[in-house]
Design a protein around this nucleic acid. Structure first.
Length: 595
RNA sequence: UGCCCGAUGGUGUAACGGUAGCACAGCAGACUCUGGAUCUGUUUGUCAUGGUUCAAAUCCAUGUCGGGCAGCCA
């Protein structure tokens, strides 16, 4: 069922009214960092609306600040968006033919600019995202138009003075001494700004609105600043760059966007968004801005600045470190697009600044992986078990189900022998009565195999357990005469002689507190145990693991092959990431007894 | 202290003047050759005070609390 929220309600109403020919949204990241799960919320919203109302969602680089942006980011953003919407809203993705810029048409003698998405282009044509920087020429024309209408002026105030003149939220601003320059002078100066005659910071183009407005953003906001800087997309073509407020509304207009959805902090910018569009006398229907609350998620940080800090200071291995809340990090961790979309659906869209419980994300991930993961047997922290009554050297092949949630996944054979590994956690010398795994003198079922009894605990000189000597009920094999015997616990195991080694990276939450950035330095809350690496003993079939598939190591959690496995020179090297553990009610029970 | 926005169980989110529902989490139980999954049951809520109305989570007023806004960032 499609979600319902206040934005979709408005869109649905507009569809009913026939207000627009087609619903058109956009996802407009600035290419100055990697996308994170908060962006995923926005992507699911914008593409979800396009999908539900038969519309299009443009991917647009909001690239008006050359000093902060880079192609590395436009590439990663494009990849992440395509990955997230893959198989779900691919046909709603608005891109354009490579190199294409707005088409100019004359409406009542006035130039209008429009760039439609290349929806039905032949496949041979190379598509790329939209770029706000593709509209710099048109934006410049629009600015000229504002100057000619007496609604914008060139201001010579220094950055510091501009600041002073702006006033404060509770104190009106003061008009710039350059505010009332003549039309011709403004025009001449602005053109010369564009031509590169003035140094950075010496002048700006400002909208002439109201320095006494209670809304700071209406106090003659800067529209253009001088920046003699190379731009990642337009190169050295420009030395003046439009500000967000000027570029964004007009980019929306140029692309024919109907619903421009952004986060709450832009709410106070909406009057300016409307002011610019309304004062340009544009012929086509104007886009409107709607705001929703950005995502904040427990036990992580979401700001690009902080994520960048983690990367730059080497606190994580990169933007795609599996502990990062970035889309690339989640992908590498093994999270799938449907899980992320399901999460986005579940958290909803409101204007309330909420802190979302990570449990909601974790539930979405488990729910998805439970259905798709192939089950395998692997032991993370092995302890040796010798079956004293099992014929030495004998190997049996046992049948195991690949996925109990999916009958089509079939079965496989697992080798069984008299020397095994089981999980250290699955044996306790002096457990509580509620523990129903292996204990001295106790019985446990080996999954798909026999019921065994622990007869002897062998320790080394330091007292460390090195081996468990057990006897198997040889009639209790799955399908055998006493297979129906009820034993409280069932544990996983691997035949020692047949086991293969794999490096397994066990990830945990990156921070130790729900709100790492609530106060002080967020880095002090970094979880020192967010990554632990072990060498696991795995059933032989694990060597056939494929990077696109997901696995459940039974009773442990969900795992996937890490990209490092493919990059390694030794092709047989196996490296798994733990995406998430299984729900562990025993851990909760065990924890209770400590309290 | 100017302007804008918000407030529904523990956490999120529905209900748009007419029985406060859902998800997650929690708790209890059933089932289980994964202490997983599944199933059943269950605890807990409309920020406050007034007003309008036959009827208010919903409309109005005031207050309280929380968030945002003073880049030539987006």
């Amino acid at each position: 069922m499609a979600p319902s929220d206040f934005i979709r309600t408005v869109v649905a109403q507009h569809v009913t009214e026939g207000r627009y020919q087609r619903i058109h949204t956009r996802f407009p990241p600035e290419p100055n960092g990697y996308l994170h799960i908060g962006h995923a919320k926005s992507i699911c919203l914008n593409f979800g609306i396009a999908r539900e109302f038969g519309g299009i969602c443009n991917l647009r680089m909001d690239d008006t600040n050359p000093t902060k942006e880079d192609v590395e980011y436009v590439d990663s953003i494009t990849e992440d968006v395509k990955w997230l919407i893959g198989g779900w809203a691919d046909d709603r993705l608005g891109m354009k033919s490579k190199g294409k810029t707005p088409e100019t048409q004359s409406v009542n003698g006035v130039a209008d600019f429009h760039l439609a998405p290349a929806i039905s282009n032949p496949k041979s044509e190379i598509l790329e995202p939209f770029y706000a920087s593709d509209y710099f020429a048109q934006l410049y024309e629009y600015a000229l138009r504002l100057v000619k209408k007496g609604l914008a002026y060139v201001c010579d105030l220094s950055p510091e003075d501009t600041d002073k003149y702006r006033g404060a939220p509770d104190r009106p601003g003061q008009e710039s001494p350059w505010r009332n320059r003549g039309l011709e002078e403004n025009l001449d100066l602005f053109i010369r700004m564009k031509n590169g005659e003035f140094p950075d910071g010496s002048r700006t183009l400002r909208a002439k609105i109201d320095m006494a407005s209670p809304n700071i953003w209406m106090r003659d906001p800067v529209l253009y600043r001088i920046r003699h800087a190379e731009h990642h997309h337009t190169g050295g073509t420009w030395c003046i760059y439009p500000m967000y407020d000027f570029a964004h509304c007009l980019s929306d207009y140029i692309e024919g966007i109907t619903h421009s959805i952004c986060t709450l902090e832009f709410e106070v910018h909406r009057p300016l968004y409307d002011w610019i569009l309304e004062n340009l006398d544009l012929p086509r229907p104007l886009p409107h801005q709607y705001e929703f609350a950005r995502l904040s998620l427990g036990y992580t940080v979401m700001s690009k600045r902080k994520l960048m800090q983690l990367v730059n200071e080497g606190l994580v291995s990169g933007w795609d470190d599996p502990r990062m809340p970035t889309i690339s990090g989640l992908r590498r961790r093994g999270v799938t697009p449907p899980a992320l979309r399901d999460f986005a659906y579940n958290i909803g869209i409101t204007k309330y600044n909420a802190l979302t419980d990570v449990a909601v994300l974790e539930h979405a991930i488990r729910d998805d992986l439970n259905r798709r993961a192939l089950r395998r047997l692997a032991v993370l922290r092995p302890i040796k078990v010798v079956l004293t009554n099992f014929p030495e050297g004998k190997t049996e092949e046992l049948d195991a189900v690949n996925n109990p949630e999916d009958a089509n996944a079939g079965t496989r054979k697992i080798p069984f022998s008299g020397v095994l590994y089981i999980e250290q956690d699955d044996f306790m010398e002096n457990p509580s009565p509620k523990y129903f795994r292996l204990r001295p003198g106790g019985e446990v079922r080996l999954k798909y195999a026999y019921i065994i009894r622990c007869d002897e605990v062998v320790k080394d000189s330091s007292g460390k357990i090195v081996e468990l000597r057990c006897t198997a009920d040889l009639d209790s094999k799955s399908g055998g005469p006493t297979a129906g015997r009820k034993v409280k616990g069932t544990i996983h195991w691997v035949s020692a002689d047949h086991a293969i080694d794999a490096e397994v990276r066990l990830y945990d939450r990156l921070f130790t507190v729900p709100e790492p950035d609530a106060s002080g330095d967020f880095k002090q809350y970094l979880n020192p145990h967010s990554l632990e690496i072990v060498t696991a003993k795995c059933e032989p079939r694990v060597k056939d693991a494929k990077p696109e598939l997901r696995y459940q190591f039974e009773r442990l959690g969900y795992f996937c092959l890490d990209k490092d496995a493919q990059l390694s020179t030794d092709k047989t090297r196996l490296i798994f990431n733990r995406t998430i553990t299984l729900k562990d009610t025993w851990a909760k029970e065990a924890h209770k007894s400590y309290e």
